[in-house]
Amino acid sequence: MSSGIRATPEVTLERAAAPTRLEWRVATVVSVRAETRHARTLVLDVPQWPGHRAGQHVDVRLVAEDGYQAQRSYSIASAPESPTLELTIERLEDGEVSPYLCDVLQPGDGVELRGPIGGYFVWEVTLAGPLLLVAGGSGIVPLMSMLRHRALAADASRARSPVRLLYSARTADDLIYASELARLGSAPDVRIEYTLTRSAPADWTGYNRRIDRPLLEEVAWPASEGTRAFVCGPTPLVEQVANLLVEFGYDPLRVRTERFGPTGS
């Protein structure tokens, strides 16, 4: 086999035009918002932003004066309808990029990014049918884009896509978007359940343990053909929830996942 064989002219013709490169763009920080002790939202103005779908992410690139560069991926928190692009960044203590984005970057600064990236972990309100969202920690971010997108849709569309969110965090202080979620959760067809895995306030009325089978059975929609699930969080949580949903009878192709971190807890 010759190693020189490459795409034939036919392949080029099938791909009508050369794909457009995802260009690096310098976004401007419009404002910043503290979400929790460890998470901060950057509100960005991105020149010629091509738009995104709820669930997608961007790559952020930081280049130092000596040419050193670091890149990381961050989920988009804002709805596709939003005029600004919002990223919610969890500060990782030993991280290299997240401490810069959380502590150093200020309104008026520029930050380089490209996207949107990813086309599988995406949801649009036109996909009618019950929606199940399960978040662990900062895994809430891409799901928030879906909830915000849904909240902006017409009444009839919302009625066709009732949503349940199960949000797992260590403590009540670690819940991102708490007040906005309280508002969203008061709407018809939206049910939000929380579980705190480390400690809970004395007056806590939500769950108070890691997600297990009985908990998920209580919160998840019964399996049905049209139900879609999006699960985002640390690997052990996502493995557990996705496996259980398949056991409950969910179509594996409609259980979409984004994991972060290694195996094991």
Binding site: R61, Q69, A70, Q71, E96, Y120, F121, T235, E239, A242, N243, L245, V246, P252, L253, V255, R256, T257, E258, R259, F260, G261, P262, T263
Partner: peptide
Amino acid sequence: PGQYETRDFPVLSAGPTP
């Protein structure tokens, strides 16, 4: 370019584990 070293073994999959 653009990579960092990790000692973990992160997991990335688009759906449930078969």
